[in-house]
Design a binder for these strands. Structure first.
Lengths: 373, 373
DNA sequence: GAAAGCTCTCGAATCGTTTCGATCGAATCG
DNA sequence: CGATTCGATCGAAACGATTCGAGAGCTTTC
């Protein structure tokens, strides 16, 4: 093929109008209502009639009910919206969201539902402008709260994953807020680090609030931010805080290896940190990607992991180019979370009670924690 | 938040029905048709009336026309489908598709269109079951051809990106087949490698056909496969073939760093390849991810790039953890391709002529090619 | 043999919006 | 001042499916 076959599609005037159920009914010599019943297999229809309708449909080239008409009549469009935190690109650079969305798509397509991907843009016009039956919100940015309100006004069933900020909005009636107990899982990891004997520990966090600018923080600064905001990052920080108080560290702008590398370089630079302590012997990162970045920084600095530096992550995802199972982390049941989110909405739409399992993170011991040198 | 607040949404019986335009019209004391005109801003409506209608809408809590009803009436649902090759996860692990989809989403959301993500599953039920106005097909798997036929039957405008296989299906009337000239770009890279003096060159290809099992191939095998199939991989192989005939190499199962690493290990194992030649001095990889994997394999084997081994890629994407601009490759205008695909469909839907720019790949010289040792 | 109970089919209403043609009043023009 | 035009508004007709209640033709039962 060459660059761009500017092939004018001349489908305009010659386009045959899509055959309707009325045409099928006429062809089969039955009423439209009967044709509908026969085709959908809902009502009591004689086998002969059913066959006749099917044959007629075949003859006139009927390919099933027009989804637009059907969704108008039934009030259901068989589409579920997934509101991302930001652009598609940034959302899907993160394996966590990627796995969740994949699981959602999988479950939805099993039952013939479509997935409408909604970049969490500033503009909520899309939310009201396209038909959907329910929505899943990923993450817990302030934007998600806005989106949730808009969607709520349209009285759409809502489910969030990791929507900690939304869970605290009293007036939002949400079907479910899914997610593991980030705080407990973080505490568990922190205890593991403490048990190995570390005391000079630094933390690499996800963005703590709206402000996405990266940089170092002291324990006091972290405490102030944690008090003011509710987010996944502050939840996890609180968990670590149960074990290590007054931790300083670095806030990353995003959950990427590159950000982790930057964080690692800053933390391992050798000079004392802003609180006056020496180089940390352990780093608690709030995501696996960040942790891998920190490990890369350690290697750059000639430090061995875990002999010279212990590192833990969070999420339990497979990081490209990093041996699976090596990193000490906790594994979130991301696929299960995605499936459950989809399932919860499908049940809600079907009018069935929504039964939600409990989700918990599982410790992955790995090989990146050892006693301090 | 704890694991799973099983918060029963009791919105069922108490749910207020969505206010309709009729309610607004009644409140404002005008006809429904006038209310529609006033609200949409289409017809000639007196300023006073418009204001009255807006005020009435505000009072009754009208939040714009029901998208289902509107799309039923107009026959447009303001949704465009994007058919992926496989699961969401595998499609979006590839930065190439990720950037394209991101660009599509961006353009669509600018004009208030939604993006329906359709995993290219075996089942085409979804394609006919949910309302969309047009579709974009990514990649050129055999599955895409099937999907294209289904969508064509629904007389939906179609655009492909890198749909070389589809471009050769005579009976498919497609608005546009977008993509750079992969063959020419590959030839350009191959000439660059040849100019550096290489003759023992191996190729790492993307899956050549339906068969996705990885493994080594000889020149003859490659020729046979190229003759039998049309795909991005065979196109690029042909381009390289213009410069180096009878190239052997390795077919990767997927465009990932891990697959590139595997390929590199196999090719650099030191023993002669199946055609009896020694270790290659240059590797032409069909994607940047594969190329980075090969470079990692070279490092593992203690080879320096480019001093001991030259490596080129394809795509021009930023690979996490690899310095931007270092890899010798060609850059595809991926964002532009995505934007153009969306734009082409929007124009087609608007009945405007579709003007497509020419897309060409741009050589990124990089620093991974040098004369053979 | 009539009443009751089936199974199958049908007609009609309905969903909420957009759009087309008609109408009505006021302003413009000759 | 009457004829014409134009802008603003309205009523009604779609769009295509689903669904409900009614009824037609059976068979079963007393």
């Amino acid at each position: 093929m060459t660059s761009s076959d500017n092939e004018q599609s001349l489908a305009g005037p010659g386009a045959t109008p899509r055959p309707t159920l009325a045409a099928v009914a006429a062809e089969a010599g039955v009423a439209v209502s009967t044709a509908s019943l026969a085709f959908s297999g809902k009502g009591p229809v004689a086998e002969a009639t059913r066959a006749a309708v099917r044959a007629a449909a075949e003859r006139v080239g009927y390919r099933g009910p027009d989804p637009r008409a059907a969704s108008f009549r039934t009030g259901r469009s068989r589409v579920i919206g997934v509101v991302l935190e930001g652009a598609v690109q940034s959302a899907f650079r993160d394996p966590v969201q990627l796995i969740e969305v994949d699981a959602i798509a999988e479950r939805l397509s099993e039952v013939g539902y479509g997935m409408l991907l909604l970049p969490g843009a500033e503009d909520d016009a899309l939310l009201g402008g396209t038909a959907m039956d329910a929505a899943i919100l990923l993450g817990c940015s302030p934007r998600a709260v806005t989106a949730a309100r808009s969607l709520q006004q349209l009285s759409l069933p809502l489910v969030t994953i990791d929507g900690v900020a939304l869970a605290h909005e009293e007036d939002l009636a949400v079907v479910a807020n899914l997610g593991v107990d980030s705080r407990a899982a973080s505490a568990e990891l922190a205890r593991l680090v403490a048990a190995a004997g570390h005391s000079r520990v630094a933390m690499v966090t996800l963005p703590l609030g709206e402000d996405r600018s990266a940089g170092a923080f002291t324990g006091a600064e972290l405490a102030a931010m944690s008090a003011a905001t509710i987010s996944i990052a502050t939840e996890r920080a609180r968990g670590v805080g149960e074990v290590f108080s007054d931790l300083s560290g670095w806030m990353a702008a995003d959950s990427t290896i590159a950000d982790g590398l930057r964080a690692g370089r800053a933390l391992l630079a050798g000079r004392a940190d802003r609180a006056g302590r020496g180089r940390p012997t352990a780093v608690i990162a709030q995501s696996d990607l960040l942790a891998v970045g920190v490990i890369r920084a350690a290697e750059e600095a000639g430090l061995r992991v875990p002999e010279d530096l212990s590192v833990v992550g969070f999420d339990g995802v497979v990081v490209d180019g990093f041996p699976e199972g090596r990193l000490t982390t906790v594994r979130q049941p991301l696929r299960a979370l995605g499936l459950a989110a989809a399932q919860a909405l499908l049940a809600e739409l079907a009018g069935e009670p929504v039964a939600l399992p409990r989700f918990s993170a599982e410790l992955v011991p790995g090989h990146t924690v050892a006693p301090p040198p």
